[in-house]
Nucleic acid binder design. Structure first.
Lengths: 196, 196
DNA sequence: ATATATCGCTAACACACGTTAGTGCAAATT
DNA sequence: AATTTGCACTAACGTGTGTTAGCGATATAT
């Protein structure tokens, strides 16, 4: 009857959520069972329910905490008085750093949100759509100001966001280049591809 | 007792496989049940087993048919006597066209291969790894020949491949630009990003 | 020291899953 | 026309799933 160990300023629920992120990432939400999760936490499956309401709650928690972080950062960057292309670069770098440092959460939020239930599902999809529109708007501005090539902005957004999710492969690769080098390479190619 | 309808040159198994692609794409392999599949084929679940061996067989079929198409095309392009950057562009265009026209299969092969079982799993992973190495080698050549910026080749590969998978968002979006426009935009940004 | 809330346990539930066995009709083959 | 094969059906199986109920021990608060 060993209790779940918590470090300072983390609840037992936090421990469960972050173990869930690891598990959902490696098996996928549907394939990861509560018994798997329990084992990785070091407890029986039923005991998890003293801390959480349901399996899906874990997914909510992960998806929305990630989404909120990105939205907040976008607010911040959008209001800075800098050229559009620099805003895009800042956002890009933020995404990369997040994907490198909070791999599991970000990955799960990106790939497993399909398994959310309404109303969370439509909510999440809306946030996502709006986020992309805001990015597209920045790119449009950059095009008007002749900083960015005259391309289709939504397509550019789609390329940027999905390219970032490729960091998954970097995480899995044997001989990794450093995170900093990865970031510079990605910025070179992607910002370079957009710039006139 | 209505039989599965087949068109000319397609077996009943083909019908099942392609319906499975649609289902696996929209729900994910684990979340899609054989009963779901049966319903979309217009038959009882048990009847499917007159044509297939198992649920996983459907996934094999999808993953490897896609992988083989890509490998074959790579063979073809690799041996052409053209500059490296043009090879990359050709491969890129092939990926885009495949993702546009064979959306379901390609998407499933890309996202759901995790659920393959050994020995198919390791087999598939190997093929993938080798494919990426061959792409990286082409990029390295391009760098040596000063056609391509001096970037980390594996990182470039990862960006290319994942950017392409972003076409998923294009498929789902309401106001789509044409497939041809999509292709040109993607090539502009990505080949532009690589070129010196 | 006593009372209370916290939390992990065992046992069990209802259900959805992939799959098999066996039956009989209809199409294909002779 | 007779026979064989193809194929969809019903019924059911075993297993793994998320989750609940209720008990007892331990940590926390009084």
């Amino acid at each position: 009857m060993a209790r779940i160990k918590t470090e300072k300023n983390t609840t037992r629920k936090d421990v469960i959520v972050s173990k869930a992120a690891i598990l959902f990432r490696e098996k996928g939400f549907k394939a990861a069972s509560m018994r798997d999760l329990a084992e990785s936490v070091g407890v029986e499956a039923a005991s998890l329910y003293n801390h959480i309401k349901s399996k899906t709650e874990l997914l909510h928690e992960l998806c929305f905490s990630v989404a909120n972080r990105f939205l907040q950062k976008l607010d911040e960057i959008e209001s800075e008085p800098i050229p559009a292309i620099q805003k895009i670069e800042k956002i890009l770098r933020f995404h990369i750093v997040e994907m490198v440092n909070n791999y599991e959460e970000v990955y799960v939020s990106d790939r497993e949100w399909k398994h959310l239930n309404d109303p969370y599902l439509s909510n999440f999809q809306n946030q996502r759509r709006i986020y992309r529109k805001r990015l597209a708007a920045i790119i449009e501005t950059g095009i008007k100001n002749k900083e960015i090539k005259p391309i289709d902005a939504p397509t550019a957004v789609l390329i940027l966001l999905h390219a970032i999710s490729g960091i998954e492969s970097w995480h899995r690769s044997k001989q990794k280049i450093t995170a900093a080098a990865l970031e510079e390479n990605m910025v070179t190619i992607l910002v370079g591809g957009l710039t006139i």
